[in-house]
């Protein structure tokens, strides 16, 4: 991304505004879906899906991750991997516990 060219920057500003509108719209959508009272797994899936889209928009355009350097991608990929480990391994170990069946 070239940040010295004024036209280029103006183009970017238009992108920012589009993203902003999209974020507001998605917020409304997620609130509206919450009013439908879906079953819990479905509601979680939809809400997390929408939040992920919103988060990607913020990270991708406002934090201009779409055109970032390799070093930053590398650091973030590492973080995401460890984040996944931190989130899923405790959940797995919580769901896989020894149950004493024959205790009177």
């Amino acid at each position: 991304m070239d940040f010295t060219d004024i036209h280029e920057i103006k183009k970017h500003v238009r992108v920012y505004v589009t993203v902003f509108v999209a974020l507001l719209a998605l917020t409304m959508i997620t609130v509206a879906i919450a009013q439908l009272h879906l079953s819990v797994p479905a509601a979680v899936a939809v809400a997390i899906f929408i939040a992920t889209i919103k988060g990607s928009l913020v990270a991708g355009y406002f934090m201009h991750l779409v055109s970032e350097k390799k070093v930053i991608y590398a650091a973030l990929i590492l973080t995401v991997v460890f984040f996944a480990a931190l989130m899923w391994l405790p959940i797995f170990s919580q769901s896989d516990t020894i149950v004493y069946k024959n205790v009177p």
Binding site: T30, V31, A34, A43, I50, V58, M63
Partner: peptide
């Protein structure tokens, strides 16, 4: 400073459905 500020926004984007909607 902006990167930090957007990150704070990003956290809220996940907090909002998790705490308020689900």
């Amino acid at each position: 400073a902006g990167l930090y500020w957007h990150f704070v926004d990003l956290v809220w984007i996940f907090l909002f459905p998790t705490l308020y909607l689900l």
